[in-house]
Amino acid sequence: MTLPDAGTLPPSPSGPSVRRAPSLRRRMACWMYEGMLMFGVVFVAGYVFSASTQTRHALDNRHALQAFLFAVSALYFVWFWTRGQTLAMKTWHIQVVDKHGQRLGGGRALLRYVLSWVWFLPPLAAMGPWQLSALEVSVLLLGWVAVWALLSRFNREQQFWHDILAGTRLIDIQPDLARRRT
């Protein structure tokens, strides 16, 4: 059985235009898997940057490397989101669409990427003024991720708030188990 093309949505049990959000557990599992995949993307991009700029020390060209990795990550996500799914989203049967159920355009995907940095920026911003240790930042980051994820429970559509602001939705495209058994 093959999954539908990212441009067309499979019919929903509650109607063709109403799609439910995946469970928070599935979205967070997808988020974790995406992080593992991004480790590889960032590793290769960092190696290419370091080799091409002849960087010998980790702190040399630090800001240029950060900008480069931000751009590479943006390209990765925008490219996949305009096609409906990243590899992690395909694995967990999750698709990103606009609020009308259509594929994302490049501008909306880029807006979603920028707004999704709310997962990381508040704890990272706390590093500077308070001189937090790496352990304290890690605890703060994990706490913030949990809070941000749980805030989706206060949205009637169960969407993350950065998706609401970007005009996007995560939808469940899990294949019907009754059809899979036959």
Rank of each mutant, 00 (worst) to 15 (best):
M1T: 10
P4E: 12
A6C: 04
L9C: 05
P10Y: 06
P13M: 04
V18I: 13
R20Q: 13
R20D: 12
P22F: 02
R25S: 13
M28I: 06
M28P: 00
A29M: 15
C30V: 01
E34P: 00
V44I: 15
Y47I: 11
A51N: 09
T55Q: 15
H57Y: 13
A58N: 09
A58G: 08
R62H: 10
R62T: 06
Q66W: 11
A67L: 14
F68W: 11
L69S: 09
L69W: 04
F70V: 05
A71D: 05
A74L: 15
Y76A: 01
G84I: 09
G84T: 07
T86V: 04
T91K: 00
W92E: 02
Q95H: 00
V96M: 13
D98E: 03
K99F: 04
G107I: 05
R108S: 08
R108W: 07
R108T: 14
A109N: 01
V114A: 09
L115D: 00
V118W: 08
W119C: 02
W119V: 09
P122K: 04
P123Y: 01
L124Q: 08
A125T: 09
A126N: 00
A126K: 01
G128E: 05
W130H: 10
W130C: 04
W130Q: 06
V137I: 15
V137W: 07
V139W: 14
L140Y: 04
L140S: 07
L140H: 04
L141G: 07
L141T: 15
L142F: 13
V147S: 00
W148P: 01
A149E: 04
R153T: 11
N155T: 04
E157F: 05
Q159H: 05
Q159A: 02
F160Q: 11
F160C: 14
W161P: 03
W161N: 03
H162F: 08
D163N: 02
R169M: 14
Q174F: 07
P175E: 10
D176W: 08
D176K: 11
R180A: 15
R181F: 10
